[in-house]
Computed example of a mutant assay.
Amino acid sequence: MDKAELVFNKVNKLLEWFLIGVFALLVLDVLFQVFSRYILGTSFTWTEEFARFSLIWMTILGAAYLNAKREHLSMDFLYGKFSLRNKRKASIFIEVCIFLFAAIVMGIGGGNLVYITLRLEQLSGTLRVPLGYVYAILPFSGLLIMCFSVYHIIKIYKNKNAL
């Protein structure tokens, strides 16, 4: 196992545990919300906002995690009919497209969103958290996806017989 693969596996494991933690917090938050509403007879407004922010983080980071595992949604009917050489070319093309999307939309666009919301000092309605911190998951996940795409491209080039 080379150094890049070791780092890749450690980042994936860390990301996996972080996603499990966010999901656990989301479940606890929603359970507390239901408990407080039906048992205590009162509703805490912050629980809905926390659940929304947790879901945002889980979804965006989950996309990066699935990209690392190469388990994102795909339609591979045509891909399955390609020769090994054309599969390699298509895989590299797909990884380049994913890299460009992550760089432009998530990295640049997400970075601008974070910058603008922090500059304007926008706060969330209930928790009063700067929205830039919530949106920071976009450029961070974009950077992860870009790194994973580069890793996959290198792996495709090194291994001539498999994808």
Rank of each mutant, 00 (worst) to 15 (best):
V129E: 02
G62Q: 01
V30R: 14
S124E: 03
I108M: 06
W57V: 07
V34T: 06
N112H: 11
G107E: 04
K10Y: 12
W46T: 07
Q33I: 05
S83E: 09
A102Y: 04
I108S: 08
F50W: 12
G110I: 08
F23C: 10
R88E: 06
L31P: 05
F140D: 00
T126I: 09
H72I: 08
D29V: 10
A63I: 07
I145V: 13
K87S: 08
L113M: 12
Y79M: 03
A64F: 02
N112K: 11
I60N: 05
S36F: 15
L26I: 00
E5F: 00
K10H: 09
A102G: 04
V11E: 02
K87P: 00
D2Y: 05
V150F: 10
N67I: 01
N12F: 09
F82P: 07
L61V: 04
N9M: 11
G111C: 05
S124L: 03
R70Y: 02
W57M: 10
F77S: 13
R85T: 15
I154T: 12
R52K: 13
M75H: 14
L40A: 13
L31G: 02
K89V: 13
K160L: 11
A63N: 01
V129K: 00
T126C: 09
I56Q: 02
F44L: 12
S124G: 03
V96R: 09
Y115A: 14
I98T: 15
F8P: 04
L73V: 15
I39V: 15
F99K: 10
D29H: 00
R119G: 03
S54C: 11
I145D: 01
E16W: 03
G80V: 01
L131M: 14
F18E: 06
E16T: 05
I39M: 07
K81M: 12
Q33H: 12
L61S: 01
E95T: 00
R119T: 14
I92K: 04
L66Y: 14
L40H: 05
I92W: 05
T59C: 07
L61W: 04
E121Y: 08
R119C: 00
L66H: 10
A68G: 15
V129R: 08
Q122H: 13
L138G: 01
K89W: 09
L143A: 13
F140W: 04
V22W: 03
K87L: 10
V22Y: 10
V7E: 07
Y135M: 07
N9C: 05
R52P: 05
E71I: 05
A63R: 08
Y151C: 04
S91R: 11
H72L: 13
R37P: 05
L40P: 01
K155Q: 15
K81Y: 13
I98H: 06
Y79V: 04
G110P: 08
G142W: 04
F93H: 06
M106Q: 06
P139F: 05
E71H: 11
I92P: 08
I137C: 02
T117A: 02
G142T: 02
M58I: 07
D76C: 00
L127G: 07
F18R: 00
K69F: 00
S91I: 01
T47F: 08
V34K: 09
N86R: 14
F77Y: 12
W17Y: 15
A64Y: 01
C97V: 15
S83Y: 10
L163W: 08
L73C: 07
